[in-house]
Nucleic acid binder design. Sequence first.
DNA 1: ATCAAAATTTGGACAATGTCCATAATTTTG
DNA 2: CAAAATTATGGACATTGTCCAAATTTTGAT
Lengths: 154, 154
Amino acid sequence: MIDTFETQLREHGLSVTAQRLTLLQTISDYPHITADQATEIARKQLGSISRQSVYDTLNMLVEKGLARRIQPFNSPALFEDRVGDNHHHLVCRNCGAVEDVDCAVGYRPCLQASDDNNFVIDEAEVTYWGLCPKCQSKNSKSRKSTPQTRKAKS
Amino acid sequence: MIDTFETQLREHGLSVTAQRLTLLQTISDYPHITADQATEIARKQLGSISRQSVYDTLNMLVEKGLARRIQPFNSPALFEDRVGDNHHHLVCRNCGAVEDVDCAVGYRPCLQASDDNNFVIDEAEVTYWGLCPKCQSKNSKSRKSTPQTRKAKS
DNA sequence: ATCAAAATTTGGACAATGTCCATAATTTTG
DNA sequence: CAAAATTATGGACATTGTCCAAATTTTGAT
Ligand SMILES: [Mn+2]
Ligand SMILES: [Mn+2]
Ligand SMILES: [Zn+2]
Ligand SMILES: [Zn+2]
């Protein structure tokens, strides 16, 4: 799988470095991860990596279309490797949990704004706000930020 | 008009203070304003107001449904007084300009997620990303720095 | 109008997230 | 392998926002 990552990097004219390969693996394993969490995980692989490299790499991956960045209120940016399918996100107002949700209407329907004000639109980001099942029952008044610990994708 | 603001505050069980009246006026005058910009403007009215009061007040107005907060990537939170109509936003990737755009399909259509994962959804935030007319013509002169655009050592 | 309780405001410290910059190290090119 | 290009590093710095305890203002009841 790391091999595919190398190919992806080369196809985009990017140097192949251990840092980039590791971060590609990381966002593949942990969807909706913060830069900080990615740093922590990458460090277990690499021994060390600078914070700046993590930001540079994640930003660059987004730029190249190899990763996607979402930014819910009250949360640092989250990164994921699921790109190109224009999917959306459910975000819990209480605990910050994030879930993927497929586009409601079909292929990139949201790119049709009612009036584009002469903007050239390339993406529609949809965030559904609410309460996750756990926070509905717990009725918990607690917590505000700090994305919770995440489990790796199986 | 300040009178209406006073009524609004009382109806929500809130004390009426010069700071709150001024900020209500401010977000009415300047849609999509940052907390910092609001502070600057409010200070011209009031002489002084603490940063904390501005945040407290704006957050509280959002909480009470008297204001709305949007948070585009790479931008501080923006506040506006246009609430309850589920309108959306165009954001320029280059200069950050924000424009209102009415809901494409009708009344709160976006609250219909294809699969709600058992979340209780109360809002759908839609952000259309692209380039504003000005930035389309100006080309990439004022682009923000990315790993790719950073200068090599001199 | 006056007073005490409740609510709000203030300022300074602090936290979180992210970028800038110069230099060092690594990777790619030839 | 050496030169050139690219990338990584770390430390300073900027921005945005919150925490906290003391001071002030507002409210509600005499
Ligand atoms: Mn996702
Ligand atoms: Mn708006
Ligand atoms: Zn939750
Ligand atoms: Zn623009």
